[in-house]
Design a protein around this nucleic acid. Structure first.
Length: 184
DNA sequence: AGGACAACGGTCT
DNA sequence: AGACCGTTGTCCT
């Protein structure tokens, strides 16, 4: 897939949230969506019920099983040059961090501190890390491309192994053909 | 090279 | 006000 653009919407209270699951090259995923766009994307590191519970806590809405909706979004993700809508909920700072993540090119990485510097708070690496940890949309918001300054891979909500695998795959892919993201 | 630890900034309670 | 953290720099062995 090669997404050309991600559009951010902020979550609208009381929107219905649908969910469905799919197989991916990096394990099974759950896709959560409102009619506006994708509001959650998780690798199933934990049981599905855990992520539904998390969604309830974050959006105050219990997701309903609607595999056809999820499938539509899933296909949208895989369209070439797709413009994809994301629905996020977070503080202003968190949203700034998430948007900054989307600017990190495929196949490259960035440190928590470099990101903090870029956002204007040189000492804010820890704050950036906690903002990243609140990311609800795995992979589409590429938080896996942020690693520690000393070269260690750092943490990952959906498993450090998976973070490593995603990075390895993107490295290969970005060499092969320039613009575009790896296939999940 | 690797462990302990304090300080960092933002957020939640 | 206090605690939690996907970090970092420094000071040790």
């Amino acid at each position: 897939m090669s997404l050309s653009e991600l559009i951010f919407h902020t979550y609208n209270e009381a929107a219905t949230i649908c969910y469905g699951t799919h197989a991916s090259a990096h394990g099974e995923v759950v896709v959560l969506s409102t009619e506006k766009g994708i509001c959650g994307f998780h690798f199933l590191e934990e049981p599905l019920a855990y992520y539904l519970h998390l969604t309830k806590k974050k959006f105050n809405v219990l997701p309903v099983y609607a595999p056809s909706h999820a499938k539509d979004w899933w296909q949208c993700i895989h369209q070439t040059a797709a413009v994809l809508s994301l629905v996020v909920r977070g503080t202003a700072f968190q949203q700034r961090v998430w948007k900054a993540l989307c600017a990190i090119p495929v196949g490259t990485t960035c440190s928590y501190q470099a990101l903090a510097t870029q956002l204007g708070s040189v000492q804010g690496a820890r704050a950036v890390a906690s903002a990243i940890a609140q990311n609800f949309i795995a992979w589409l918001i590429p938080c896996h491309r942020v690693i520690r300054q000393d070269g260690q891979i750092g943490g990952y909500r959906w498993g450090i192994q998976r973070k490593f695998a995603l990075l390895e795959q993107e490295k290969v892919f970005s060499c092969a053909s320039m613009p575009g993201a790896a296939i999940v």
